[in-house]
Design a protein around this nucleic acid. Structure first.
Lengths: 201, 201, 201, 201
DNA sequence: AATGAATGAGCTTTCATTCAT
DNA sequence: GATGAATGAAAGCTCATTCAT
């Protein structure tokens, strides 16, 4: 990579990191371009050289960060040596919940700004973001390897993500209705029920 | 109520209605005080006589609107003549989902702006908002009447609300992962499973 | 007029005068809102309380200033005691040229920014700007009083204004192709010819 | 011409053409250097290798385009076989008006940006732009060939150009005060009068 | 209690120009 | 000669909030 190219990458990363910090602490709407460029240490105009506006940078961040979470959970799964599909899925969910417990700001950011409209691109194997990690393909492979046939696997994944996402956010961030550790037995029990409800007889 | 008092109430309601319309269509951040007072037909300064800022008015709206939803669902439940607790809860959830399907703007508003921090006040029987409707008390009474003993009924309610809220929002507004009608069987099955998981043996 | 009303008028006039000074010296495009409000001694937001943008204030100025020029020329005409229509028209043209010779900045401003689209409103008796002075009505009355019948009086007025405007601008501002005094005999001769060409036999 | 030289010429022309397109459609002030270099397909810095700023490129365009218009009209005149000087001048004016009627954008561009300060260089036989076409020399020759002696021929040319320019712009672009076709009889009559007023007895 | 004129900080965005490569 | 990344001043405009009336 030439000096210019590496310098460009540095600037872009600088902007992404600065944006991320502010989105997590102040939220999207309360973060201004001025905040971002000041922290990133670049000029105003430079921002617009790399991103259309703050919604553009937000989308790119959401996709990148969520793909990263899955990626890390999947790597851990490989080494966990589980063979039951229910256990595998709960392992992945648990891994992500653990990471988010340690990073509440990231959790808040993703909870507010991760819409299905955007997340779909992470799941879509044909999306340009699939480079980072092919989440959709991995999920599909996981189900196939289980030897079990599933009814409506997309709805199943959707319900697990929504239930886990909504409840764990509230528990981790607000402690409502209880701590995440207290919630987990109930949550995982429900996830198991959801999986079982989608297994074809 | 004196003429002055009723005039004040009229102004207050005017501001609440105008805000609600804008919050639903433009969203909280994109709605300005000017938008609100213009539609409400009052002067700029008058806004600050009744509310601290737009976040104040937002909170009051969220509580009022969500209490209304439960109230309407509960009234219908009285006349439905159901005796099973599972059926009763699913009836209420279904009633609310139906109302929100017909009023997507309200759904969007509540989804974005209804936090547990605020909603807690609707459930709390000692909150000043309990005047409107004592949601927490009604839920408790419902469980008692069922003759069944529940483990952690608060967690149970929480999980039902979060699962139903998150999945139905996505299905109704974006049609993801499917229509709300297609989702219902899976959703209600999961709700039943959640309830059963909380029944004490 | 209440204190508030008179204060508003003062602010509005302040903005108009400041704009006018800048439009004349720097031109429309090179004048910024900041220039204007600074000279006017009001806050940024105040500008937008009175005008939509700088094009709005420009239009209002152009109309006002050109109506003023005609008004002043017409008053002088009343006292000149001329009876010939050719002499009357040339008197008005000459009066305006004299005023503009003494005020080159105004000439430049009107030359650049006085379009027929805008000026039409000064001529139109039904325009809201006709309050200031009914230029169109006066011109019509002048022709009627002359006892002469004119063919296409609108085209005649148009040609006189365009010829006088374009040539006198160049002569006064740039001295091209000669001084305004040297140009006058030729210009007025041509105006007379234009008038005569429009008299019905 | 060497390959390098022709490449340079290509870049220069590219910039001129791109500028012209934008000046005609968006106007000078609303056209940015970025617009120009993007359409021209060269780098930002390259612009400054060929032109000082956009006013520089504008001046060069105005001169080139107006010389072209005269050139084309003069060529047509050669083949028209007219012998009367009035007819010849009106032929040239008419030819230019016809071309501009078919190219309103060019008309707008020249009307706004063709100042006498710039145009003088087209007329001046000693100007470097006289290479393209010696408009001033041709006009002088035309008068000489007519056998008539003119008083102040420069003023005469000036008045014709200003009258024709100002009135035909308004008629063609805005249809004010009438269509260009309806205006022509009055305009050409006035031009004839102007010419006659400059013939020495 | 109600008004709405006034404020000015702060927003997003554009742009001519420079200069290291 | 040519490039285009980077700059940062400056543009137009919005807005929550204040306060004299």
């Amino acid at each position: 990579m030439s000096k210019i190219e590496s310098n460009k990458q540095k600037k872009r990363d600088s902007l992404l990191n600065a944006s991320f910090d502010f989105f997590m602490t102040k939220g999207l709407e309360k973060t201004s371009i001025s905040d971002i460029i000041e922290k990133a240490g670049v000029a105003k105009g430079t921002f617009y050289l790399y991103f259309k506006d703050k919604y553009d940078i937000r989308n790119k961040l959401v996709i990148h960060k969520s793909a990263q979470l899955f990626s890390s959970a999947y790597e851990a799964l490989q080494e966990a040596g589980l063979d039951n599909i229910q256990d595998k899925i709960i392992f992945v969910v648990d891994h992500i919940i653990e990471e988010l417990s340690d990073n509440k700001a990231l959790l808040t950011f993703l909870h507010k700004d991760l819409t299905w409209g955007i997340f779909r691109r992470v799941l879509d194997p044909h999306s340009p973001f699939a480079e980072e990690i092919n989440v959709g393909g991995i999920y599909k492979k996981l189900l196939e390897q289980s030897g079990v046939v599933f009814v409506e696997p997309d709805i199943m994944l959707f319900m697990i993500i929504e239930l886990a996402g909504a409840t764990s956010y509230s528990a981790i961030v607000d402690g409502i209705p209880c701590s995440i550790e207290d919630l987990k037995p109930y949550l995982y029990r429900s996830i198991k029920d959801i999986i079982n409800a989608h297994i074809q007889d």
